[in-house]
């Protein structure tokens, strides 16, 4: 297995692992938002969905374990790659300039850290339910009421929306990057990939942000 160890110590190998785990994490986001949008259908729909997930504890825990492995791997190699990048230019330019690198590509570390902080808060808020005593006291499966209660608070809704801006930026560079890093590249598809990556990323973020926004604005009660 030393070939594998050697490969991931390498700039390309480390990034390939980030790309693969990035695909897994993006896949999770797509599944997550698909379920969340049921809130617009009504209380029964989303509560039944939440309860349905718990009918298959083995699948649920396997998915959670896979997600945790992907998450930790992604962050570990992001840190490894970033430290290498910082070390590669010990003396910065007196006059720094950017020709064509996008804002999203230049803020991957920042948006990643915002997402990490958000995910910890999000788990504490809706999964472990320790941030809000009223949510803690609610019945086990009333997801609908829990979400409504959460997003009526401006601070909570606002911080979720800010986190979605970070996710939108992160994905808009990340999705297109997956194709480049894995070498899935051809002049025939390059333009489509460079357009679709940001479009999908921003689209996912907008769908997620629509939930706290519409609850806070009273569109969903």
């Amino acid at each position: 297995m030393s070939w594998l160890k050697h490969a991931v110590r390498n700039p390309i190998g480390a990034k390939v692992l980030m790309a693969i785990t990035g695909i897994m994490l993006t896949g999770f986001l797509v599944a997550h938002i698909s379920g969340n949008l049921l809130i617009f259908v009504g209380p029964q729909a989303i509560n039944a969905y939440a309860e349905g997930l718990r009918q298959f504890p083995a699948v649920l825990w396997a998915a959670r374990a896979g997600l945790l492995v992907a998450f930790v791997t992604h962050i570990y190699f992001a840190a490894y790659v970033t430290m290498g990048n910082r070390a590669a230019r010990p003396q910065p330019y007196a006059f720094s300039n950017t020709v064509q690198a996008t804002l999203a590509s230049r803020s991957m570390v920042l948006t990643g850290m915002v997402m990490l902080a958000f995910i910890i808060f999000h788990l504490a808020h809706f999964t472990w339910r320790i941030t809000d005593s009223e949510i803690s006291a609610m019945g086990e499966f009333d997801v609908y009421q829990m979400v409504i209660r959460g997003f009526r608070q401006p601070m909570v809704a606002g911080s979720y929306v800010i986190a979605m801006v970070a996710i939108g930026l992160h994905l808009s560079h990340g999705i297109a990057s997956v194709f480049q890093t894995l070498g899935l590249n051809h002049p025939r598809y390059n333009r489509a990939v460079r357009f679709a990556g940001p479009a999908i990323g921003v689209g996912i973020a907008l769908l997620f942000a629509s939930i706290p926004l519409s609850i806070y604005l009273g569109l969903v009660k």
Partner: peptide, 22 residues
């Protein structure tokens, strides 16, 4: 060549494409 690049202390590509612009 990729290993040699790494050993010389160059960084990693983050797909920002500043290189092709210059």
């Amino acid at each position: 060549m990729v290993s040699a690049m790494h050993e010389e202390g160059f960084g990693n590509c983050t797909n920002q494409y500043e290189c092709e612009a210059v």
